[in-house]
Design a protein around this nucleic acid. Structure first.
Lengths: 156, 156
DNA sequence: ATGCATGCAAAGAGTTTGCACCTAA
DNA sequence: TTAGGTGCAAACTCTTTGCATGCAT
């Protein structure tokens, strides 16, 4: 029971092995190969409570699983995972890309300019307004990226 | 009169020479040096009706004024201009930074994923909501970056 | 057996830095 | 005269690509 709770992901409300099984099935059905590299990169992202850069992923693979996976492989893999909608990316001014498990629900980020803490939020009013604006300008909305920069309470 | 109208900037509602004079005074008051390079980089940004990359600026300097200014100098200059709030920058996924004259008014961007057309918009509801969210999470908001990606009517 | 995957090395894009010389004030 | 500025070359960061080998299916 304790183990099961540990394996749950807050974001997906799912245990890792169910998630991994589904993942492996999707990889197979696309005629791609299941590998240790893919599994562990996914695992690191699944259990992380923060947004990770490619470099972070390499370090965590080494630290937690003593695995040496080439950074090139991680770049290729996160690109694939993003295309398959397993993960999403976040661009922050002057930083490498950050990755996180796909929440399915559209959300935005509030970032502290000093300590780089990232807070996620959802706002239905902003979501709807964006739809309105897209329609007004005759755009078909596909995704958006709202990042608010500020100072968190600890840093000011 | 025609000339005067030509020299007006839609965004600043100001003619270039008034703008340049004010700019030069600010540069002097900071004990920085006024140079041809700074003047012309500002000029290109002033008269542009679109967002410019550093590379765009170098090309326009050559095309319009037959000036060869080193790209390094342009990088250094736009960085300075941004710190002095003469211009603002915009980050788009997988693109170099885009610069534009500072509007003073906070605004957002809608970008076509196919032709990269950039449309600017202002929305008071979104602005206020962002303030609310910052307060809720105990952040002091300083700036934000909302980019909506979609397909414009021509591209879909 | 086939073909995607891995990982090394190398290239690539965008940007910054160090430094000698130049120029505005 | 003396800071700051310019522009060349080189470094730097992040990311992608080419290719030989490896491994899943």
């Amino acid at each position: 029971l304790e183990l099961k709770k540990y394996l749950m992901c807050k974001k997906k409300n799912l245990d890792f092995y169910t998630f991994l099984k589904n993942f492996k099935e999707q990889i197979s059905s696309l005629n791609l190969k299941n590998t240790i590299q893919k599994d562990y990169i996914l695992k690191v992202l699944f259990f992380s409570d923060r947004h990770l850069t490619v470099e972070d992923i390499v370090e965590l693979l080494k630290k937690h699983y003593n695995l040496d996976i080439a950074i090139t492989t991680v770049y290729k893999t996160v690109k694939l995972f993003e295309e398959l909608n397993f993960i999403t990316s976040l661009e922050i001014e002057g930083s490498p890309k950050y990755y996180e498990l796909n929440h399915s629900i559209s959300h935005n980020h509030l970032i502290c300019s000093s300590c780089f803490k990232i807070v996620e939020f959802i706002d239905q009013v902003i979501e709807l307004k964006q739809q309105e604006i897209a329609i007004k300008h005759k755009f078909t909305l596909n995704n958006h990226n709202l990042v608010i920069y500020g100072l968190c309470d600890k840093c000011r």
